[in-house]
Design a protein around this nucleic acid. Structure first.
Lengths: 252, 252
DNA sequence: GAAAATTTGTTCGTATGTATC
DNA sequence: CGATACATACGAACAAATTTT
């Protein structure tokens, strides 16, 4: 195998069947990425070129490319100007795969919802500290939108979810945003259930309070209110003494 | 293509090049998983069998299996009793892939460390609420181990990291543990730097206080102490006015 | 321990669909 | 529209690994 692309060093994370030629190619590309020899947008060649460079068959290259593609490391395009390029980062890439791992691992929805509270409450705290004027405009706008659909359970739920996401985005931490999106994807893969008018009104009031606290920079109160808000949602979604099943989210 | 395994419905998460035959197979297996038709340990057949069932070539099956394997959905073994089986869940599976996505997305170490504080502080809070006697024994044992290597920077750092992990595990939330491990892998892929004696002694004192608070169920104080603890570490690792670079962790 | 059976890993050659110019 | 370049897909075959006999 050609080692000109980079010096082949076995990865530290011990994949299964690491000895296969395809996995060696994966490791080489990965190492080149961390060594700074490759970056987003860089063309690493067509299947034929790679097969020639590594002195392996095209099928073997395909195996490696399929792995790299699934890991989100490369993007593959067909056509005359196609080929394999280093991908731009996409932090939402593993949302679905993470959901599958949670399912396979038998992690309960209760644990995931706990995690959701962790992310969202601290995201709220950070939002109160780091929010920009633009963030406040966005949040205010979403509040107005929600107020118009208090009688439409489906639309209100959607508006509420947008508001929650906007809060996390106001934290200014992309890692937090990515984790939030992943967990939401895990819990509500099929979309949320509807909320009754009374519940919607209460949620709207809480959202208004959250907005004020974030605007005024009251980090700790905002965090506590968010915890209470999410806990109440969980209490409804997960009837006590039954941490196994769920009827789905009520709102937000 | 054979549709007997399950009714093919395109996934809601819009993959690129979803029309490819290989990705259709991936989607089918994934759907069967969420529909409960497949579970961990189930044998879904050899490459030859799958090629026959789906009425595609073996290479196409290989493409699909490579994707499923990278997503951690299946495990593949060679040999007489080999074949492709639905994998057991492994929440650490995406640690490396997540690190790559952070790198490709240009997420700063500062953001990741913020995220780390989020996870760890709330993990501490939950630990104080949910810790079992076994957890306390484990934490106490790790404290003793650390006390013996106060003069050995490398070993003390390692012991400190074990202590931090044990706290998160005491939270009883596997999703939290998985996220903690992932982020630690992102930040310290090559192992941590050394800590001086004075710093080690201070860290040890903080760890003792954390243990006491967790033991006594003092959730809120434990959380605040952990935030302060991690913030001080970050202050050293990330000199102020310079959120870009890092000299690596000092301890824990 | 050795041989046989099974399965994945890998190769070559060839044909087709698709995107660009 | 045609030419070009690429990924996608097919079939047959051999090598390597692993379990069973």
């Amino acid at each position: 195998m050609d080692k000109s692309l980079l010096n082949r060093t076995p990865p530290s994370w011990a994949p299964v069947r690491a000895n296969s030629v395809a996995n060696q190619i994966v490791a080489q590309v990965r190492e080149a990425l961390f060594a700074g020899k490759l970056g987003p947008g860089d063309l690493i060649g067509s299947e034929k070129e790679l097969a020639r460079q590594f002195d392996v068959s095209r099928i073997t290259v395909r195996d490696a490319l399929r792995t790299l593609e699934t890991m989100g490391i490369v993007e593959i395009r067909v056509g005359a100007t196609g080929g394999t390029r280093i991908a731009n980062g996409n932090l939402d890439h593993f949302s679905d795969a993470l959901a599958i791992q949670f399912k396979l691992s038998g992690v309960t929805e209760y644990e995931i919802l706990d995690m959701q509270i962790v992310i969202e409450s601290t995201g709220t705290e950070l939002a109160a500290q780091n929010r920009t004027e633009k963030d406040l405009e966005r949040l205010s706008q979403l509040l107005d939108e929600a107020s118009l659909v208090l009688d439409n359970p489906e639309e209100f739920t959607q508006a509420g979810q947008k508001f929650h996401l906007a809060i996390i985005e106001a934290s200014g931490n992309r890692a937090l945003v990515a984790q939030f999106k992943s967990l939401r994807h895990v819990i509500w893969p099929r979309g949320a259930k509807r909320a009754k008018r009374e519940i919607a009104e209460h949620a709207y009031e809480v959202h208004q309070k959250l907005f004020t606290m974030i605007k005024e920079g009251e980090a700790e109160p905002a965090r506590k209110l968010m915890v209470a808000h999410l806990s109440s949602i969980r209490t409804i979604a997960f009837p006590e003494n039954n941490k196994q099943s769920s009827n789905g989210p009520i709102c937000c």
